[in-house]
Write a protein that binds this DNA or RNA. Structure first.
Length: 932
RNA sequence: GCCCUGGUGGUGAAAUUGGUAGACACGCAGGACUUAAAAUCCUGUUUGCAGCAAUGCAAGUGCCGGUUCAAGUCCGGCCCGGGGCACCA
C-alpha cells in the first residue's frame, strides 16, 4: 500500500506535467525580457511579421493562431540560427464592428476595443508566442494615428511626377506652373486641362487649389456610395443584400458624396514592376496584376448622329480597335454623363425606368448577373470610317468606373456583346469569316479581317497598329493604356477611424500643421450618422465650428504603414527614424491570409513607394517574402426543428418533416451526436425540447462555413491549451496540414500530437524508471537518426513545411524509442530542433539535462552528411514503367554500370520475356526503368 | 459573371525535381499489461479477386481525353468546394 503510494508519487515527478512547466517558463521568459529586441546588434537582422488582427469582440478562435504559430516557429528558428529577429504584434483597432456595437449598446468603441485587446493578448500569451510586446502598437491610439495623419498630409502635399516617375512635393509643381504652366505635367485628374504660366498667374486662389487637388496623391472628389435613406447612413457592400440593407431590409440607392481618394492609379506601373522584385506566390502576383488590369488599346471618339450640342462625340475605350468595322451597337453605362442628352423623347420613359432599376443594384450584382438588361437610347453614333449608323444602348454590364464608361460592341468577337445582340435582336456583322460560327463569339486575333474597309485582308493582330495609326492621323482618338484599378476611396462616413487633419475654409481644404497633430477623435454622445450622409462627427458643433472634415479614414489607413512603426514605436518626432528603418529594412517574411491580396497589400506597397520617393525610407517594397496562410473554417452543426413545434428531428429523418435548420453550438455535439441534456440547458427556449431519434441518438447535420460566433462553430484555443498545453496546441495546428491550405477545424487528431510530446518526454524521464537519459556515447545508427532529423527539420522549417516537420519529429522519436536511445548527446540536439515548435517542453528538458543558459538561444545543430551516407541502395526496377523487382546498386554507379548490371540480372531477364531492352533509365536515387 | 485556389483511404494528410501513391497521425479491429479502468506497448487497416498462409494479380489520387518508357504531378475540356471582386477586416 505504502509502496504503491510512493510509486505514484515518483511517477508524478517524472511524467510530462505541462500544466506546471508551461506557465513557469512563460513567466520566466517574460520576467527576463528574453523577447525584447534591440535596434542595434552585431547579428544580421531578420524581420518576421504577422498581419495584425482586428480585435473583434468574439475573441480569438483557432483560426487566428495558425499564421501566428507559423511565424513564431520561423522567428524562433531564425533566432537560433543567429539572427537579431524583430517579431512584433499589435492591433488594427479602428473599424466598423466596434462602431456598430457602440450604436447598439452605447458603449464607447475605445472602451470595447481596449477590452477586446486585453482578451486577445491574454489568449495569445497562453500560446507562448515570442512577440516583443514592448513594441505593441494600436492603430486607434492617438500616438499612432498622429503619424497616419502625418503621412496622409505628406500625400496631400505631393504629386506623382510622371517624368521622374516618383512622388514629389507639390511645391515643385507650383514652381513649374509659375514658369511654364502645366505643359510638362499632364493633369491626372483631368487630362484635357492645359494652361500657361500667365493663366496660372491670373487664376484666383480657389481655382489654383482646384487644379492642385487634381494632382495631389490624396485628394478630394465625388464618388458614389450605397445610401440607405431609412438608416440615414452609408453602407458597405457587405451590408447590402439584394438591393436592401442587411439590417432592416431597407432600400439602398447610389448617392454621390464628396470623398477622399488616394491616387493609386499613378503607381499602377510601379506596383506591377515591383512584383518582380518580391517573393510572393505566383497566384498572389497574378491577383494583383489582374486587379491593376493594365491593358493597351485605343480611345476612339464616335460622332453622334444629329446631336450637335455634345461637347464632343461618344468616347469609348477598346483593346480591340481592329474590330471597328464589326461594331453593331454601342453601350454606355447607366451613369454615363451623355445619357440625358442621348435619350430621345420617344425613349425617355423607358430610359428613366431603366436607370431607376439600375440605381437599386450593387456593382457586384451588376457584374454577376446572367440576366441581360438594357435599353435603347434612341440615338445613333457614326462609325468614323464608313459613317454607318450605330445604335447607342444603355446597359448595366458596362461600368461607369472603367475606361470611359462606354464601349463599342462587336458581337462576333465578344460573348457578352453577342448575347446582348441576340437578346435585343440586333443584327450581327461577321468580320472574321469562318472563325465566327454564328453560335459563339470568337475573341481570336488570328483571323483575316473581312468586310473591314481599309483593314480587309489584314490579320487582326497586325491590324491593331494600323487602325490606331489611322485613328490618330484622323484626330479621332489616341493610343491608350488603361487600368482596371481605380483610385482608392479613402473616406468613410463613420466615427471609429482616424479624423482627417483637414479643415475646410472657403471650400478649400487646408491641412493642419504638424503641431496640431494628432487631431484627436472627439468623444461623442451618439454614434448616429450626421445629416446628408455625413459621419457622426458632423453632429458635433465644436467639430463643425472649426470647419473640420467630418469623414474619417478607412480601415486600411493605419494598416498601410504599421510595419514601419514597430521598428521605432515610441518616436515622438517622426513616424520612424530613418537610421532605424535603414537597419531593419524590409519585412523579410510577412504572413497572412489571401483575403488581403488586393486591398491591404496594394495599399501598403503604395504607401511604401511614396515614403521611399519622398526620402523617408530606403526601400520601396515593404515585404520581401509573403506567405499566405489558409483560412481555418468552422464545421457547423445543425438541428432540425419541425415547423411550429419544439420537436427536433434527427438529421437522417428530417426529410419526413417540414423543418427549420438551426445552428447548434459545436461544443454541444460529439462528432455528429447531440448531447440532448446540454442542448436543453443551452437556451431557455429549448428547455422543453423534444427529440425524434434514430438508433436512439440525435444526429446533427454538418456544413463547412466561415468560423464565426453567430454560426456557433468557433473553437476556442484556450480550452485546448488548458487541456493539452500550448506545445501540443502549437504542434497540432501545424500538423493539421500545410500553412497555406484552408481547411475546416477538427480537434480529433490532437491526441496524437499530445502523445508524441509525452513519448518525447519519456526519452528523458520515465514514470517508472525515473531519469533515463544518460551520457553514453552514441552509436552510428543513433547518429544517423539524429542527422537525418536535423536535415529534415531544417529543410522543412526553411520552406515553411511545418506539417511535415512535425511528422519528422514523430518519426525521430519513434526510431529513437525503437533503438532504446536515451543518450544526452543525441537528445539535446533533437531538443534544440524542437525549440521553435514546442518551446516550453524544450526549455524544461534543456534545464533538466543540466545545460547552462536557455534552450531559446542554444546553438542550432549542424547537419553532418557523412553520418547519413550509404554506399549501396536497393533500387526498385520497373519494366516499361511498371514496378517489377528490386536490385542493389552502389550509389556511385554510373549509367553504363547500371546498364551492364541490369542486362546481367536474371531477375530482370524474367520480366523482359526474351526482349532486348531499348534503353535503361537510371533515375539517381529513385529507381531503374527498363524500356522494351 | 470575372480573378485566384483546392479536390488523394473511414478521417487529417505525405509524396521537395515527372520516377515504388497513401509517409506521419486520427479512428477502427485484434492482442499484451491490469481485479478493472486509465495510461502505455504490439499487430492489422486503399479497394477488389485468389490463397490456410507468406503472398500474388488487378484497379486506384473529382470526371473525360492527351503527351511520356513513366503522370497525383505536365497539356486540353468538364464537375464540385473555398477565397476575393474596391465601405468587413
Amino acid at each position: 500500500m505504502s509502496d504503491n503510494f510512493s510509486t505514484t508519487e515518483q511517477s508524478g515527478q517524472n511524467e510530462y506535467r505541462f500544466r506546471e512547466i508551461e506557465p513557469k517558463w512563460r513567466e520566466h521568459w517574460k520576467q527576463s525580457n528574453v523577447y525584447r529586441v534591440s535596434n542595434k546588434s552585431n547579428k544580421p537582422k531578420f524581420y518576421v511579421l504577422d498581419m495584425f488582427p482586428y480585435p473583434s469582440g468574439a475573441g480569438l478562435h483557432v483560426g487566428h493562431p495558425l499564421g501566428y504559430i507559423a511565424s513564431d516557429i520561423y522567428s524562433r528558428y531564425k533566432r537560433l540560427k543567429g539572427f537579431n529577429v524583430l517579431h512584433p504584434m499589435g492591433f488594427d483597432s479602428f473599424g466598423l464592428p466596434a462602431e456598430q456595437y457602440a450604436l447598439d449598446t452605447g458603449q464607447h468603441p475605445a472602451d470595447t476595443t481596449r477590452n477586446n485587446i486585453s482578451t486577445f493578448k491574454m489568449q495569445l500569451d497562453n500560446i507562448g508566442f515570442s512577440y516583443d510586446w514592448s513594441r505593441e502598437i494600436r492603430t486607434s491610439d492617438p500616438s499612432y494615428y498622429k503619424w497616419t495623419q502625418w503621412i496622409f498630409l505628406e500625400l496631400f502635399d505631393s504629386f506623382y511626377n510622371r517624368n521622374t516617375r516618383k512622388a514629389e512635393k507639390i511645391g515643385v509643381l507650383i514652381s513649374a506652373f509659375e514658369k511654364e504652366g502645366n505643359q510638362s505635367f499632364v493633369c491626372p485628374g483631368d487630362d484635357t486641362l492645359r494652361f500657361t504660366a500667365d493663366e496660372w498667374e491670373n487664376f484666383d486662389e480657389g481655382r489654383r487649389q482646384d487644379i492642385l487637388m487634381n494632382y495631389r496623391l490624396s485628394f478630394c472628389g465625388y464618388g458614389e456610395v450605397n445610401w440607405c435613406e431609412a438608416l440615414g447612413t452609408v453602407l458597405a457592400n457587405d451590408e447590402v443584400v439584394n438591393g436592401v440593407s442587411e439590417r432592416g431590409g431597407f432600400p439602398v440607392v447610389k448617392k454621390k458624396l464628396r470623398q477622399w481618394y488616394l491616387r493609386i492609379t499613378e503607381y499602377a506601373d510601379r506596383l506591377l514592376e515591383g512584383l518582380s522584385t518580391v517573393d510572393f506566390s505566383d497566384a498572389m502576383k497574378e491577383m494583383q496584376t489582374n486587379w491593376i488590369g493594365k491593358s493597351s488599346g485605343a480611345e476612339i471618339v464616335f460622332e453622334l448622329d444629329g446631336i450637335d450640342n455634345a461637347a464632343e462625340g461618344l468616347r469609348v475605350y477598346t483593346t480591340r480597335p481592329d474590330t471597328i468595322f464589326g461594331v453593331d451597337f454601342m453601350v454606355i453605362a447607366p451613369e454615363h454623363p451623355l445619357v440625358d442628352l442621348l435619350k430621345t423623347d420617344q425613349q425617355q420613359g423607358a430610359v428613366d425606368e431603366y436607370i431607376t432599376y439600375v440605381k437599386s443594384r450593387s456593382e457586384r450584382e451588376r457584374m454577376a448577373e446572367k440576366k441581360i438588361t438594357g435599353v435603347f437610347t434612341g440615338a445613333y453614333a457614326l462609325n468614323p470610317f464608313n459613317q454607318e449608323k450605330i445604335p447607342v444602348w444603355i446597359s448595366e454590364y458596362v461600368l461607369a468606373g472603367y475606361g470611359t464608361g462606354a464601349i463599342m460592341a462587336v458581337p462576333c468577337g465578344d460573348e457578352r456583346d453577342l448575347r446582348f445582340a441576340r437578346h435585343f435582336d440586333i443584327p450581327v456583322t461577321n468580320i472574321i469569316g469562318d472563325y465566327f460560327n454564328g453560335e459563339e463569339a470568337n475573341a481570336t486575333k488570328d483571323a483575316i479581317l473581312q468586310h473591314s474597309g481599309f483593314l480587309t485582308g489584314l490579320v487582326m493582330r497586325d491590324a491593331i497598329d494600323v487602325v490606331i495609326n489611322a485613328i490618330e492621323e484622323k484626330g479621332i482618338g489616341i493610343r491608350r493604356t488603361n487600368y482596371k484599378m481605380r483610385d482608392a476611396a479613402f473616406s468613410r462616413q463613420r466615427y471609429w477611424g482616424e479624423p482627417f487633419p483637414i479643415s475646410w475654409i472657403d471650400a478649400v481644404a487646408v491641412p493642419l500643421s504638424q503641431q496640431e497633430l494628432p487631431l484627436e477623435l472627439p468623444v461623442v454622445e451618439s454614434y448616429r450618422p450626421g445629416p446628408n450622409g455625413e459621419g457622426p462627427l458632423a453632429n458635433l458643433p465644436e467639430w463643425t465650428s472649426r470647419h473640420l472634415e467630418t469623414n474619417t479614414m478607412p480601415g486600411y489607413a493605419g494598416s498601410s504603414w504599421y510595419f514601419l512603426r514597430y521598428m521605432d514605436p515610441f518616436n515622438e518626432t517622426s513616424f520612424c527614424e530613418r537610421s532605424i528603418s535603414d537597419y531593419w529594412n524590409q519585412v523579410d517574411v510577412y504572413i497572412g491570409g489571401t483575403e488581403h491580396a488586393v486591398g491591404h497589400l496594394l495599399y501598403s506597397r503604395m504607401w511604401t513607394k511614396i515614403l521611399f520617393d519622398l526620402g523617408y525610407i530606403g526601400f520601396d517594397e515593404p515585404f520581401k517574402k509573403l506567405v499566405n496562410q489558409g483560412m481555418i473554417q468552422g464545421s457547423s452543426r445543425f438541428v432540425y426543428r419541425i415547423k411550429g413545434t419544439n420537436q427536433f428531428v434527427s438529421a437522417g429523418l428530417k426529410n419526413n418533416y417540414d423543418t427549420d435548420q438551426i445552428h447548434v453550438d459545436v461544443n454541444l455535439v460529439d462528432g455528429v451526436e447531440l448531447d440532448m441534456d446540454a442542448f436543453r440547458k443551452w437556451r431557455p427556449e429549448y428547455a422543453d425540447a423534444g427529440f425524434i431519434l434514430e438508433d436512439e441518438k440525435y444526429l446533427c447535420g454538418i456544413e463547412v462555413e466561415k468560423m464565426s460566433k453567430s454560426k456557433f462553430n468557433t473553437v476556442n484555443p484556450d480550452q485546448l491549451v488548458a487541456r493539452y498545453g500550448a506545445d501540443t496546441f502549437r504542434m497540432y495546428e501545424m500538423f493539421l496540414g500545410p500553412v497555406e491550405m484552408s481547411k475546416p477545424w477538427d480537434t480529433k487528431g490532437i491526441e496524437g500530437v499530445h502523445r508524441f510530446l509525452k513519448k518525447f518526454w519519456r526519452l528523458f524521464y520515465d514514470e517508472v524508471r525515473g531519469q533515463v537519459w544518460n551520457n553514453d556515447k552514441a552509436t552510428a545508427a543513433e547518429l544517423k537518426v539524429l542527422h537525418q532529423t536535423i536535415r529534415r527539420i531544417e529543410n522543412d522549417t526553411e520552406r515553411f513545411s511545418f506539417n511535415t516537420a512535425v511528422s519528422g519529429f514523430m518519426i525521430a522519436v519513434n526510431e529513437l524509442a525503437d533503438l532504446d536511445c536515451h543518450k544526452k548527446e543525441i537528445l539535446e540536439k533533437i531538443l534544440v530542433l524542437l525549440v521553435p515548435y514546442a518551446p516550453h517542453i524544450a526549455e524544461e528538458l534543456w534545464q533538466k539535462l543540466g545545460n547552462a543558459g536557455s534552450a531559446l538561444d542554444a546553438p542550432y545543430p549542424v547537419f553532418e552528411p557523412s553520418l547519413v551516407a550509404e554506399s549501396t541502395k536497393e533500387y526498385p526496377v520497373s519494366v516499361n514503367g511498371k514496378l517489377r523487382t528490386t536490385m542493389v546498386v552502389s550509389l556511385d554507379a554510373t549509367q553504363a554500370m547500371v546498364d551492364e548490371m541490369v542486362l546481367a540480372n536474371e531477375v530482370v531477364q524474367k520480366w523482359l520475356d526474351g526482349n532486348t531492352p531499348k534503353k535503361i533509365i537510371f533515375v539517381k536515387n529513385k529507381m531503374i526503368n527498363v524500356v522494351i
